[in-house]
Design a protein around this nucleic acid. Structure first.
Lengths: 201, 201, 201, 201
DNA sequence: GATGAATGAGTATTCATTCAT
DNA sequence: TATGAATGAATACTCATTCAT
């Protein structure tokens, strides 16, 4: 539980969130974990491998958190709301994670495969969840909604630090996040409404 | 036009897009611009100042591109569509820009003020454009739609490189972007429909 | 004893003596110590901290060498001669030190506090040693003799390299230093004679 | 009078006094003189040549100021006092100069010939002024008094910045310098007294 | 497991100097 | 005379990584 390797991983998590992969340094991780710099290379092969683990750990938890929601019963609309809830709850509990992913996605391509790999299953699930609502191609195809959902959920965490000075309170406070959740469910309903209306003119 | 200072700025733009601020090096900029490293410090005070210029240049152009759309005539719905069009066109022409902003937003806070400063006027414009449609507070307040619009527009560019292997073609190709534009106009209409329905129950 | 950190310190001592703080480079120290440049920053925080150590080491030894002479028994005249002897002996054994101090004193003020700090106790000691001989104020006050003694002792080492071509032999050779010591004791006696004569007219 | 070349020389003077040769930069001189950096190389061959000029200018004025005092009439004692006065007056009017010389003397040897060259005539004059008072060799030879006088005069300016915090007032204020002058004349008298006593036992 | 020491390649930045205009 | 642009070599300092203990 509190093993050294885990303490290092936890420290790496914090450092990665604060500095991004390029800005993060092994020394910073060692200092935060309270261990010798060389020990990090004993437990993890390299800086790159260490931070890969941090991301992988998040992805594993993320996929696990969404799987049951996708596999749930009920109408497409119900399942989508339940997925959105699970998604937002996970993000709320790990608000560093969406920021890390966005940072990797917009950074140098080296780390991109890490994201792509883990995005693939999610992409498949969303495709299936939307297949009865969406046309197979065109601007209302499932793949567009996949991007839209992802952007909407993660974007809020991306913009949060820039919004803080413009808003009255902290965008990541619990109350603010609850309101955001309502906003997103409302959006989701409008999308489903719209898709159903398109289906039967 | 092709002055050395501009060649450096152009090179810095490319390097910043590829590597992000932390990953970018002055040497890389110098090599790409084909100039001596020291010359960069002659033309720009520091690495930080150089990349600030790159961002500011984009922001100036971005705000200029949106101003006329916001100031246009017509119904709220029409103006919103026109803003969305201007927004997407600008992003399409400068697809590195949204990625840079997202990278800064999710990185260490040092460069955050640069984004906040420039986000403020945009925030004000959106508030005004939505004021007749949105309630003053709660989950349907204008500020939530500001985040949603921003996330939707920029998110596509963020996710593009990760989507490429999952989709059949390049997401930033002209045809794909046109389809995305249709998708976003459809979303915009659903939002406005929803807001108008809320207004008169 | 011959640890790497000490080898670096010794090399820094030599380099500082030869080039002065501004002229000294970390590379020069590394080369002279036969170690990697980065190792210097591992053992000492910065160039500034490294050279501070060099000076502090001298000052600690210097103060230690003079303390017993100041605390000795005997008449004021005897104690002054004994202090002068200890002072000259220390300088003779560390002839780089007075030159370093003079160089700092006449250079940019950054490093000045380092000297001031260490000069303070010496100043106090001299004040006390002279209090029964000197008036409290005016041109014969102890503080003037403090400057005069200090200048006379250190000045010889300052001028030594410039004197070498004018004199027949090396001013820092043992024999020359012994003669200089006699000169200074003679001067000291003339000063004490004079002060005593002033006291009882 | 206010020609560009002179403005540069004046700026170089100030910069040299503040930073020392190693710490001084051509850019700093250019900025202070309000001219383009390259112009300095047009008027003066190099950084080294520029600062050499600064020193040479001082030395020429210094020798000129002392020549008449050395050549004056009167007893040896009178002439020595008059030289001391001229010396101190010159230093008082150019307090940067003694500090520059001390800085060069205690720095890397490159600039040493500049000092030695100019020290030689002064050395000869003092030898002659003292020849009737001093033995030809030994600890009371003229050459020792040359060093002692020089050290005493210049040393005060060297130690001034370090003394300021220990003393009540600024050591370079006019009043303080006047008191110092008295102190040195007293010392001079004690030396001459002593030398004359040695001559006739 | 864990540490202190060590290194080569990298970082941003400043230097004195040159040259075309 | 004067300037803006340009450069190669230097600056202090940090990096991820290795290794002996």
């Amino acid at each position: 539980m509190g093993s050294t390797a885990e303490r290092i991983l936890e420290a790496a998590d914090e450092v990665l969130a604060e500095a991004g992969y390029e800005g993060a340094s092994v020394r910073a991780v060692a200092e935060r974990a309270g261990v010798n710099k060389a020990l990090i290379f004993y437990h993890y092969e390299s800086k790159s491998a260490l931070f890969d683990r941090v991301i992988q750990r998040y992805y594993a938890a993320h996929l696990e958190a969404l799987r049951s929601a996708f596999e749930g019963e009920g109408s497409a609309r119900e399942r989508l709301h339940s997925v959105l809830d699970a998604y937002l709850t996970f993000m709320q509990e790990h608000s560093r994670y969406p920021r890390m992913v966005q940072h990797i996605l917009t950074g140098p391509g080296d780390k991109l495969p890490l994201v792509t790999e883990n995005l693939a299953p999610l992409y498949g699930w969303v495709q299936r969840a939307l297949e009865e609502l969406c046309p197979a191609a065109g601007p209302l195809a499932a793949r567009h909604f996949f991007v839209s959902f992802s952007s909407l959920v993660t974007g809020y965490f991306t913009y949060a630090p820039a919004l803080a000075p413009l808003w009255q309170g902290e965008p990541l406070a619990e109350q603010a996040l609850d309101e955001r959740r309502e906003h997103m469910h409302w959006l989701m309903d409008r999308m489903v409404d719209g898709l159903q209306a398109e289906a039967q003119p």
